[in-house]
C-alpha cells in the first residue's frame, strides 16, 4: 500500500497505515470498545515486562526442581500458573523436553502462534514464511542456519502451534552447572533455546 503523496508545505504527514490505525482506534474508543490508557498499558507490558526472562525462569526451575519439572511436563499451563506469571493468551501451554534422543522445535505454520507470556513477542524470523515452511520440511537445515549441529542419532520433532495449543521447549541443562543456583541457570536459557532453534548456553559461552 503506497503512502499518499500530497505535498504539504506546512502540514503534517501520516502514512496510509497510520491513518488506518488512528481511524480504528478512534472509532473503537468512541464506541467504548477500547480505552486508550489500557492500550498503552498493554504495549508497555509487552515492551518491558514480558520477555524470554519469564520462560528462562521456568526452565531454570525445572532444571533444579524435579517435582516442578514433572508438573510442567504434565500440564504446563497449571505449573506455570503456580509461579504467578502473566496470564496466558491461549488456552493450553505444552512443555516439550529435549533429551539426547530427541530435540524439539516449535513453529506456527499458519500464522505465528507463540507462547507470548513465556517468551514475549516473537522474533521477526519466527513470523517469516521461510522459517514457517522450512522448519517442518528441513528442521536440520534450519538448525544448521542457526549454528546448531545435533548428532545424527538425535531425532528432531517439530511442533506446530495453534491458537489453542502453544509449545515451550525445555532445553537440556548444560554440563558443568551441577552446583548452580536457579538464578544463575536462568542466564543460560536463551529465547532461541526455548523455541528449539538454539541450545542453552554453556558456562564457557556465558563467561565470554
Amino acid at each position: 500500500m503506497a503512502d499518499h503523496d500530497h505535498s504539504h508545505e506546512h502540514g503534517s504527514e501520516l502514512s496510509e497505515t497510520q491513518l488506518r490505525v488512528r481511524a480504528l482506534e478512534t472509532i473503537l474508543t468512541e464506541k467504548g470498545y477500547i480505552d486508550p490508557a489500557a492500550l498503552d498499558a498493554i504495549v508497555e507490558t509487552y515492551e518491558t515486562k514480558v520477555g524470554p526472562r519469564n520462560g528462562a525462569r521456568v526452565v531454570a526451575k525445572a532444571w533444579t526442581d524435579p517435582a516442578f519439572k514433572q508438573a510442567l511436563l504434565k500440564d504446563a499451563t497449571a505449573a506455570v500458573g503456580t509461579l504467578g506469571h502473566v496470564s496466558p493468551v491461549g488456552d493450553h501451554l505444552v512443555a516439550v523436553e529435549n533429551t539426547p534422543q530427541r530435540h524439539n522445535m516449535i513453529v506456527c505454520t499458519l500464522c505465528s502462534c507463540y507462547p507470548w507470556e513465556m517468551l514475549g513477542l516473537p522474533p521477526v524470523w519466527y513470523k517469516s514464511a521461510p522459517y514457517r515452511s522450512r522448519a517442518v520440511k528441513d528442521p536440520r537445515g534450519v538448525l544448521a542456519d542457526f549454528g546448531v549441529a545435533l548428532p545424527k542419532e538425535t531425532e528432531i520433532r517439530v511442533w506446530d502451534s495453534t491458537a489453542e495449543t502453544r509449545f515451550l521447549v525445555l532445553p537440556m541443562r548444560p554440563a558443568g552447572t551441577e552446583e548452580w543456583s536457579e538464578e544463575r541457570l536462568a542466564d543460560l536459557v536463551t529465547r532461541d533455546s526455548m523455541i528449539g532453534t538454539g541450545l542453552a548456553l554453556t558456562p564457557a559461552e556465558i563467561a565470554k
Binding site: 513477542l121 522474533p123 521461510p130 522450512r134 538454539g198
Partner: peptide, 20 residues
Amino acid sequence: MGRPTIPISGIPSDAEGPVF
C-alpha cells in the same frame, strides 16, 4: 539473552531487536 543468529537461506535474523 540469546546470540545473534546468522542470516542464511532467507530466514531473517534478529539479535533481539525492538519488538515493534
